[in-house]
Design a protein around this nucleic acid. Sequence first.
DNA 1: GATGTTGATGAAATCCGTTTCATCGGTGTC
DNA 2: GACACCGATGAAACGGATTTCATCAACATC
Lengths: 342, 342
Amino acid sequence: MTPITIYDIAKEANVSVSTVSRVLNDTAPVRASTREKVMAIIEKHQFQPNALARSLIKKETGTIAIILPDITNPFFPEVFWGAENEARDKGYTFFLCNTGGDHSRESEYLTILREKRVDGIIFLGGRINLQHCPEEMAQELIEAGKHLPIVLVNGNIAKSGLHRIYTDEAAGAVLATQHLLDLGHREIAFVGGLKEMATTMVKVKAIQKKLKEHGLEIPKERLMLGDFSIDSGKEQMARLLEQQNPPTAVICVNDYTAIGAIKATIEHGLSIPGDISIVGYDDTPLASAVIPELTTVSQNTYQLGKLAVDLLHDLIGGGKTKKQTALQPELIVRQSTGPARR
Amino acid sequence: MTPITIYDIAKEANVSVSTVSRVLNDTAPVRASTREKVMAIIEKHQFQPNALARSLIKKETGTIAIILPDITNPFFPEVFWGAENEARDKGYTFFLCNTGGDHSRESEYLTILREKRVDGIIFLGGRINLQHCPEEMAQELIEAGKHLPIVLVNGNIAKSGLHRIYTDEAAGAVLATQHLLDLGHREIAFVGGLKEMATTMVKVKAIQKKLKEHGLEIPKERLMLGDFSIDSGKEQMARLLEQQNPPTAVICVNDYTAIGAIKATIEHGLSIPGDISIVGYDDTPLASAVIPELTTVSQNTYQLGKLAVDLLHDLIGGGKTKKQTALQPELIVRQSTGPARR
DNA sequence: GATGTTGATGAAATCCGTTTCATCGGTGTC
DNA sequence: GACACCGATGAAACGGATTTCATCAACATC
């Protein structure tokens, strides 16, 4: 019943464990006849070396982890997909740690992962995307970073020296804004997102700055913050449409809220983009699935995950790498935006 | 640099490693003063016990894994969410193994996970959902099942004796069929899904059986198989609409294909449900996000994941549990279905 | 006062691999 | 023929925890 070990193999083959180990890892020459004899017995017993014992002495586990807020939000599976594909090619297995946006759960996982001696951690969103990350939380990451490679994705810890990779969200917001301006929109609103998250406020600020160049702005009553869900987008949009003077275009913090916004708009009997233009963010699979198809900003999500693993792998290998990598976003124009009505 | 060990702690505290271990695990009485002295030093050094060493001797890793086909399909994150939440409560960390539907990758992961000595595996979809699982693939799972607990979710390996939990897809298909019949539909089609997967054919068969009771059937030309993607649903639906005598209602293999079907229908200038009724399957978040909102069959996805972990946990604990558990589906009627046009 | 029990602790074995070091026979070189 | 070197192999240390067993003091019991 108990799994068989390298010793069992050695005994049955009348060789030492060292020799079995050499056969297994091809780490030193073994006489062909010996090798075959050992291999036959390994095969026969379906022997599977204990990775724990191996990792214990080699000080590497072939395991990495990703900590992220919400796997049910389609942005994250896409990142994970890119990351996992790349990781498998490089010989890693992936822990997926879903925190639900709960920072204490991030801490728990950080501890567990270090105890499990993962080779590296990808930290995606969560506390590193906070507008103001509490000192204590930041410190925890910095401390962890001293003991194992960490890559921050879409976020930052100031002066931490931690490596990071992110999509330039300000640039993306500018693309969206410029697109709407080009279409003649002047009355623009923003929908969705927690105000304490950078992913929300970076976009808002970039939009405001761009608008200001044209003597425009998003007034307070058109800055509708909530969270990142479909329902929130729908609710914020509904409130916007009930105002005296609704905007002609809306930029949403992500695709989920944009879809909510579309629903609210249609339920109000308005047409898209005839009456109102809507722009999403992330270019998740949903964007092209809804009707009308969503104009949105692509972050090249798959690539983001892939590059994060590449970077982590380099760090694990001890190589020197750029501290920061920014991915440039791209505007995907579909059906949800059109000329401003007069 | 090298992480500090229990020996370092012991030496600095002037006690034996056994005592430190006792403090750590509370496995035997330790004098209060000793405990405090040790704890202080542990705290001071931020000592984190090596889980590899611990697992090696305790023969349990506190790690489980899930092998699934495609994390970017919204059905799977939902299952994972339920599973992960439950697992964390029970003290497990989760490996997520995404196979892309590639059976050889399933095999690779099976090997790796066994070497890493995971406490158990949840196998979701993939080869176990095949209409005819090749003997060799089945054998591999059966063999693995002899060495560690395995729970099959939404699938089966005949006569394997492996525990499983699944949603009664035949029942769900019958619900959808009955719903359409009640609305007066007689011309019904089926869209999407790989024909070699059980999740496709179980539904088809259940629908055919139900229709037969009413002297009806889905003729060959209305059985449109493809894969599980939005694009495939769109393509199959388009082909259906080009036929001489299009159906008045369509049941889709999942929500993704249903969304594709909706798109094709609208692009054809038809209205939903005025001209055509469409039913999805899975009740993913998308179902209520699209317009019109999708009538679909809920599998209680979160629960599926949660129960899978509960079952796995029981197996790991060596308890006796039911070999099979079936979850009953539920029809969620929204806007995409209505009375048949005359 | 002898014996038994409990509390507190340490020494050493154990888990299962990898790796260093040593040994030994055989071959090539001067 | 002496020496160096290489191929093939084994013995033993090591990694970092847990756990069994032994020891010893203090205290309770009769």
